[in-house]
Simulated scan of single mutants.
Amino acid sequence: MSIHSLFHPETFQGRHKENDYFEGWYFKMAKPSEVLAVIPGVAFGKNKEDRHAFIQVISSAEHRSWNIQFPFDSFKADKKRLLVEIEGNRFTPEEITLDLASDGLQLNGTARNLGLHPFPVTFKSPGIMGWYAYIPFMECFHGVVSTQHTLSGSLSLNGVETDFTGGSGYIEKDWGTSFPEAWVWLQSNCFPSKNVSCMLSVAKIPFLGKIFPGFLGFVQIGGELIRFGTYTGAKITKLESDETHARIQIQTKQQYIEFIAELGPTSKLAAPRQGKMERTILESILGTITVSVRDKDHTLVFQETGTHSGIELSEAKNLWM
């Protein structure tokens, strides 16, 4: 990993990888009539013949998902910034242009991202991973490209055009060898108040021959970004989860934060194991997440419920607590 890549987690990290590797970007666009998640990426298996690019799509309006595979040679990524192209489909932080035709899917148009809120990158903490970003052998790395932004432009899905102007957008990514054995992932930026966004990931993390429960996330309320994770010294004081619900309480040095999540309708996604997209997971983009923040004196300073929320509860009952 180069110094430039380390401090620009949004860029393609897999330039020197040859096998057992995946990388994917998650672009979410939300309006009341339609929520779309579009996930471009690459997957490397054990040899050069076992490589491909992909674009996965989830649509709330159609209540389904698609996984379109492409030859690996069709994947192009800029060295210095987030610019990914796969057979005429172009992804940057500022806009995505889609021209997808597959079995049961016609998706075309351009959506623009306005007023991006990039996640802070510093020497001490180069992104949402904190100092764990410096450890090269982590199973899975996570990056947040934009905590929230507004949208313009329109996309046509199977003949139905959605004007996303004024809608809400979010961008994150993952890369590494495999997704964790078990995890909870919660994300929403569709709250009653403007400029509110959150993300929380809790997972079983293999590290130096052992497995520990790790987590990371943030709550953004206006101009305030509350970041927390195993690396900040924060602690999970309660975790309750089943196949459709999760309740997680976190204590930081300054706040008490609670997430209460309810899964909505789900769609299937392909997920990586040793680089191969051979796992099937379920994701909802129509869940709800209630976020509460209390100060050191337990005084409630924020509580709202986000809709059009991304939720994955993958083997979550096998986490801990």
Rank of each mutant, 00 (worst) to 15 (best):
S102A: 15
G104M: 07
G104E: 07
G104I: 05
L107E: 04
L107H: 08
N108C: 13
G109V: 05
R112S: 12
N113W: 11
L114R: 14
L116H: 09
H117A: 12
P118S: 10
P118A: 09
P118W: 09
F119C: 04
F119K: 00
T122M: 11
T122Q: 11
F123A: 14
S125H: 13
G127D: 04
I128V: 13
I128F: 03
M129F: 07
M129H: 06
G130M: 05
G130H: 03
G130A: 02
W131H: 15
Y132K: 14
A133N: 02
Y134W: 08
Y134P: 01
I135M: 12
P136D: 01
E139F: 11
C140A: 12
C140Q: 11
F141S: 12
H142V: 08
G143K: 02
G143N: 11
V144R: 02
V144K: 00
S146N: 11
S146G: 04
T147R: 12
Q148M: 12
Q148P: 00
Q148Y: 14
S152W: 07
G153H: 06
G153R: 05
G153M: 04
G153V: 03
G153D: 03
S154I: 06
S154L: 04
S154R: 12
S156Y: 08
S156N: 13
S156V: 13
L157I: 15
L157V: 14
L157W: 07
L157E: 01
N158Q: 10
G159P: 07
G159H: 09
E161Q: 15
T162L: 01
F164E: 00
T165H: 06
G169W: 01
G169F: 05
G169Q: 04
I171M: 12
I171R: 01
E172R: 02
E172K: 00
K173R: 11
K173V: 01
K173H: 08
W175G: 02
G176S: 09
T177M: 11
S178F: 05
S178W: 02
P180S: 10
